[in-house]
Write a protein that binds this DNA or RNA. Structure first.
Length: 297
DNA sequence: GTGATTTGACCGGG
DNA sequence: CCCGGTCAAATCAC
């Protein structure tokens, strides 16, 4: 998949932060959808009756994706251009540099924490929040204009090994069974856990046998697969696809409703055209390739 | 008892 | 002042 380095710096552009942020969000959304399309086409061999159109669609999706990625790259470069570099890419605001530091231990010993401003950051979209690292949840926030809260995790070895890695997990609105995972900072810890992904999978309690919906959704996620946005960096790129984790569902108090955006029955072999029609909320018969672009933009 | 999670408070950037 | 990120006391789970 294409490489996308959000932190790379380019000359400053004249666009205010909030506008840029909104544009970035929209572009990221578009890119997510394009990635999903790309994943679908890559996984499904061309079928006789749709071979030509599917091949053409693949090319179009590639171009759409490249367009989104290039745009995000340029904006992303602007985003970070006002951040002065720090040596370790981790926390800054240390001591004397702080613009304003309230008296130590302002209240109950709080108030002197340091805020992460720059570190290596990349985003992934995955069907599971699990990866090969041990994480400890330290917060959850409702984010305005988003349907689901964002969960904050830090490396379990932050205290004993000073590992600065954190991640933020947010359920995607477009497809409730997928998570947008933002990794911030890289692990400096030695991994002591040799827990395999499959062991995690086995421990996952959310595989009811009496409910068709979760099975269907799991099948969808497996079809859609695991994909990654951003620059390949961490070990988690090597992880295998896992069944959907129920943990976040419980945390978010979600009902096991099937997502609308991904409401497609994968019980039979997938026809990309049919799936696309379903994915874009079109009647199968009305589906045409140019609608893919229209729906994405 | 120990470690993980929850959750309201706090802080800083915009 | 708003909002997202972090802290840490309280609570939970094992």
């Amino acid at each position: 998949m294409e490489s996308l380095i959000w932190q790379e710096k380019l000359p400053q552009a004249s666009i205010d932060f909030n506008s840029q942020r909104r544009v970035m969000d929209q572009l990221a959304h578009g890119r997510d959808l394009a990635v999903r399309l790309q994943t679908i086409f890559r996984r499904e061999p061309a079928q006789p009756r749709s071979h030509g159109s599917v091949t053409m669609a693949r090319d179009i999706v590639e171009k759409i994706l490249k367009s989104f990625s290039d745009s995000i790259y340029m904006l992303g470069a602007v985003e970070s251009s006002d951040v002065s570099g720090s040596e370790d890419g981790g926390y800054e605001d240390s001591g004397a540099n702080k613009k304003k530091l309230k008296s130590a231990g302002s209240k109950n010993g709080r108030g002197c924490y340091k805020r992460r401003k720059e570190s290596r950051t990349w985003t992934e979209v995955s069907s599971t929040v699990e990866d090969s690292y041990a994480w400890r949840k330290y917060g959850q926030k409702e984010i305005i204009n988003t349907k689901f809260p964002r969960c904050y995790y830090r490396c379990t070895h932050k205290l004993d090994q000073g590992c600065k890695a954190t991640k933020q997990v947010q359920r995607m609105e477009e497809c409730h069974r997928l998570y947008r995972i933002t990794y911030i900072g890289e692990h400096t810890c030695k991994r002591t856990s040799n827990l395999s992904p499959q062991m995690i999978t086995d421990a996952d309690p959310w595989e009811p046998h009496d409910s068709a919906k979760p099975q269907k959704i799991t099948a969808i996620v497996e079809k859609l697969g695991y994909f990654k946005l951003g620059n390949a960096q961490s070990d988690v790129t090597d992880k295998i696809l896992l069944p959907v984790s129920s943990k976040l569902d419980a945390e978010l108090e979600l009902e096991p409703e099937p997502t609308v955006a991904c409401d497609y029955d994968f019980s039979s072999p997938v026809d990309p055209d049919d799936f696309m029609a379903s994915f874009l909320h079109l009647d199968a018969g009305d589906f045409a390739l140019d609608q893919v672009g229209n729906a994405l933009l």
